[in-house]
């Protein structure tokens, strides 16, 4: 642990500011709460929002897991885990079931989460309408009026052009029937895990200076139409390592003839299954 910095890097006043924003976020599910995002010693866009939320929550007894693309060993996940081990001296784990706090980028673990766990998402763009309306002043008004016609038109245009909704990740959700919310760039495969999750889900966007939350057991619907219901990715293949047919698969190119194999993106889920089979 580095003694020159406060526990978990941030000073206690900053943590208090973050916790206030978090409480507000939990009280208004899916609503983006502006907060005084600090400059972190890691670059913007590399998880500074998630890191600040994690820093505000960590206690000395917490067990932290950090994943990127579902994997514990991707370099940025390793770096964030190293950061907290250094500035907070807390225990870390790669096992989903052992963690009290999980910081993630782009995935929700396959292993079902529990009430005593918190999932912290790194969010690049908290505004689900941003690609449709660049102005913050406009999107804020649209949220205030719950006017999400822009998004419905976008999805409808997809259907008109392609015969289906052509959004495959960062698929917008309606939280508690009120706020249109970005689930962060998780594949839509993970969207059903957001609905009535026993674990608290917190979202931190450091560069955009916004925090939002999906409290436990909150209704989360993926936006769709009655005649074009929401569906998730499916594979004809199974995981080449553990044989799973129900997890999200990464595609790996294994030679220069374009031969592919598919493996679980959630490395902990995969290795647990492989060990159980051995």
């Amino acid at each position: 642990m580095t003694p020159r910095y406060n526990f978990a890097f941030l000073d206690e006043d900053t943590k208090r500011m973050l916790r206030r924003a978090l409480l507000k976020a939990v009280a208004i599910p899916g609503c983006q709460i502006p907060f005084g995002s600090r400059e972190m010693p890691l670059p913007y866009g590399w998880g500074t929002g998630g890191i600040q939320v994690t820093a505000a929550l960590l206690g000395p007894d917490d067990v932290l897991k950090v994943i990127d693309q579902g994997a514990d060993d991707t370099t940025n996940a390793v770096n964030i885990r190293r950061f907290f081990a250094r500035v907070a001296g807390i225990a870390t784990t790669e096992r989903t079931a052992e963690a009290t706090l999980i910081q993630t980028r782009h995935r929700i673990p396959e292993t079902p989460l529990r009430e005593d766990q918190i999932l912290v998402f790194q969010v690049p763009e908290p505004e689900p309408l941003r690609t449709l309306e660049a102005r913050e002043t406009e999107t804020r008004t649209l949220h205030a009026l719950a006017d999400y016609g822009l998004m419905h038109v976008k999805l409808y245009e997809d259907i008109a052009r392609y015969g289906r909704i052509a959004t495959s990740y960062d698929y917008p959700v309606l939280v508690d029937g009120r706020y249109l919310t970005s689930p962060s760039p998780i594949p839509k495969f993970d969207n059903p895990k957001l609905d009535h999750s026993p674990a608290l889900m917190l979202f931190g966007a450091g560069r955009e200076k916004r925090i939002y939350a999906i409290p436990p057991y909150t209704r989360v619907e993926s936006v769709a139409f009655e005649d074009h219901p929401f569906d998730v990715q499916q594979w004809d293949e199974r995981c080449a390592l553990c044989g799973s047919g129900e997890s999200y698969l990464d595609e790996v190119v294994v030679d220069d003839r374009g031969t592919r194999m598919f493996v679980c993106s959630d490395t902990d889920f995969c290795s647990q299954r492989t060990e159980a089979q051995a």
């Binding site: 590399w46 990127d68 693309q69 579902g70 991707t74 940025n76 980028r105 782009h106 995935r107 495959s168 990740y169 960062d170 760039p185 998780i186 594949p187 839509k188 495969f189 990715q233 999200y248 698969l249 990464d250 595609e251 993106s265």
Partner: peptide, 10 residues
């Protein structure tokens, strides 16, 4: 940074 998951979705 890795975007394998999103890229796979696309």
């Amino acid at each position: 940074l890795p975007h394998y998951v999103d890229f796979q979705a696309e």
